[in-house]
Design a protein around this nucleic acid. Structure first.
Lengths: 186, 186
DNA sequence: ACCATATTTCAGTAATTACTGAAATATCAA
DNA sequence: TTGATATTTCAGTAATTACTGAAATATGGT
């Protein structure tokens, strides 16, 4: 298994980027390789393409599986495991976001909730709790919005993203309609 | 400068989180400390509160300044530099996103653009380029949407986030109006 | 059950990143 | 300009994280 210069640049770039995001370099490289590969690859092929040890690939793939970022499949008459990245970029992004939420955002919310439950005994704590509350509410709003977005069909989502800040107009129209209809919505 | 048990837990948590995001632990801690502090702090106070060396604080603050995440100010009659975190959580998030875009997303887009310009010489390259194109378009759409969102007033933004996936209804209404008005918008 | 081969684990080592203390530099006030 | 104090730099070291090769384990076909 060899790698073209074009793919090589892509792979190297994502190796670098990975390390900036707390993902180890080889994991980033493995994923990038799978992403641009036109067919599923087995561990041996990955190791050769990236010039890393077989065991390193094993660990990297384990990590990617834990993140639900790779699909594992089998080829008929071959007992080796073949891996590929999902076809859809939005799926990839969405999975990544969901996993990070589980691993980082949820524990943060728990920590904040616990901290907010406590009676502010020492002087500065009242202020600190106020700040934590702001952060808590922001994260809450943001994550529940994102989970809503995740449920939307990609088509609706595209529409919304393309609308960009012109969505403001639409919200104004909505409010007018609400007023006319005598709705309590504000 | 001492730190209450409540603040201490918050600080420790963001130290941990930082390292998962490619931000070094002490930088995360410094920022967390400034975030919950009711007054600006100088480097010495930070070093004492976190039990780290003065030079480490200096490097951490430099890093945070490079990210535009801290405000530097002076107290009358005191030549030491005092630091604080912005008041508004949305501002913090927004700044962080913007910096990451500059440092990571923009270089990625450049790399992808360059790769897409090249003639696919080797076999797999055509497929690889197709994949890179998908990624390019996704990132483009997403970042330009985000920069639109950044321009919106927080109030409009809140409204939109609270609307969540019910925005779909609104988009449908919009399309109907467009049809009635004979607009070419789709 | 056995063998061939695929995969994982893990202890040791390599590489990277973080941190410190000391020295150098900068800054402000007298 | 000098001195007191604040800040930065940086070489050396500590701590952490990544990687390898060898051994252990798992798997599927005969």
């Amino acid at each position: 298994m060899t790698i073209t210069p074009l793919a090589s640049r892509f792979v190297a770039h994502f190796g670098e980027m990975g390390s900036r995001w707390g993902i180890n370099r080889t994991v980033g490289q493995i994923y990038a390789l799978l992403f641009v590969s036109n067919k599923p690859l087995n561990a041996e092929e990955i190791a050769e393409a990236l010039s890393i040890s077989r065991s390193n690939v094993s660990m990297g793939l384990k990590e990617l599986q834990a993140w639900r970022l790779v699909k594992l499949q089998h080829q008929p008459g071959d007992r080796r495991e073949y891996f590929s990245a999902p076809d859809d970029v939005w799926t990839i992004f969405s999975t990544l976001a969901e996993e990070r939420r589980k691993r980082e955002v949820d524990p943060t919310l728990t920590m904040l909730r616990d901290a907010l439950m406590e009676r502010p005994s020492e002087p500065g704590d009242k202020f600190a709790q106020q700040r934590m509350k702001e952060m808590y509410e922001f994260i809450e709003l943001f994550t529940s919005w994102f989970s809503d977005v995740q449920k939307m069909e990609p088509k609706t989502l595209m529409q919304l993203m393309k609308l960009g800040s012109r969505v403001k107009k639409l919200l104004e129209v909505k409010d007018k309609i609400a007023v006319i209809a005598g709705s309590k919505s504000k």
